[in-house]
């Protein structure tokens, strides 16, 4: 595996909140076009790990290299790195004061990445892809959760990111909305987007992931191809977790 091919390279990542040790030395490498799903019990540190990757959380120690940029280095311009990392949140976090279209075009226009026309054309294309172009001029408050999340994905994609991070994207959705959002994500995976997905959707992980990472207590306990990890988990913690979630 050549260095160039690595999109994410995390070494000995530690995150403490005072005496609360959330991440206890994590190592993870993600290749270009790879889809990695992170599973594990609540409080295991999955979301914190994901948020460290675009520095919404400041790591306590360790090294994180994204696309060749060492973001643990204080001199790295995080704004530039973040432009290339799309992030999708559990609670969508659409901007309620802006229309769907403005939500999507705000960043590229503000950052002068695109002209207004170009940004809006791209936004309409993206909205078509997620099936919501007719909502372009609506405000987020008038959308359902599933629609909001698809807009949020379109908003992240508008910046043409190299990597997409998903932080439990379907956890806040009504069950009938989950499918639409997962479909959008599957399409994205098919198109070769590098993705790290923190999720409780085991079906999605099985079907889409190239690799599944199981986290517990701030450690990566086990990782492997979905078929191996789901059908033949080696670590007793993994076995225990899978028994609980799959039989639920």
């Amino acid at each position: 595996m050549s260095e160039q091919n690595l999109k994410v390279d995390v070494t000995d990542l530690i995150k403490d909140y005072g005496n609360n040790h959330v991440l206890k030395g994590l190592n993870l490498q993600v290749k270009n076009n790879e889809v990695v799903c992170m599973i594990g019990p609540s409080g295991s540190g999955k979301s914190t790990f994901l948020r460290c990757l675009n520095k919404l959380e400041d790591p306590t120690a360790g090294q994180i290299v994204i696309d060749g940029h060492d973001i643990s280095n204080k001199n790295t311009n995080m704004n530039h790195v973040r432009e290339k990392i799309g992030m999708v949140f559990q609670h969508f976090n659409l901007f309620p004061n802006l229309t769907v279209l403005e939500n999507i075009t705000l960043a590229p226009i503000e950052l002068k990445k695109m002209t207004k026309q170009k940004a809006e054309a791209t936004a309409h294309d993206l909205l078509k892809n997620v099936g919501l172009d007719e909502k372009a001029n609506a405000y987020p408050a008038s959308l359902s959760g599933g629609q909001e999340q698809r807009v949020a994905i379109a908003r992240a994609l508008e910046m043409q990111p190299d990597i997409m991070l998903f932080d439990e994207p379907t956890s806040a959705l009504d069950p009938e909305m989950v499918g639409d959002v997962l479909d959008v994500m599957k399409n994205l995976a098919k198109q070769g987007m590098t993705m790290i997905v923190v999720t409780h959707e085991m079906g999605f992980a099985k079907e889409v992931a190239d690799r599944v990472v199981f986290m517990a207590d701030g450690h990566i306990m086990e990782e492997g191809r979905p078929a191996d990890l789901f059908d033949h988990p080696k670590n007793p913690r993994t076995q225990d977790f899978l028994r609980k979630v799959l039989n639920a």
Binding site: N54, L56, N79, H80, R82, E83, I85, G86, M87, F89, H91, N93, L94, F95, L106, A107, E110, L111, A152, R155, A156, M159
Partner: peptide, 13 residues
Amino acid sequence: DPGQMEAARSLGL
């Protein structure tokens, strides 16, 4: 909501 700032920053703003 603090998520608003996070979402805006994560877009590179």
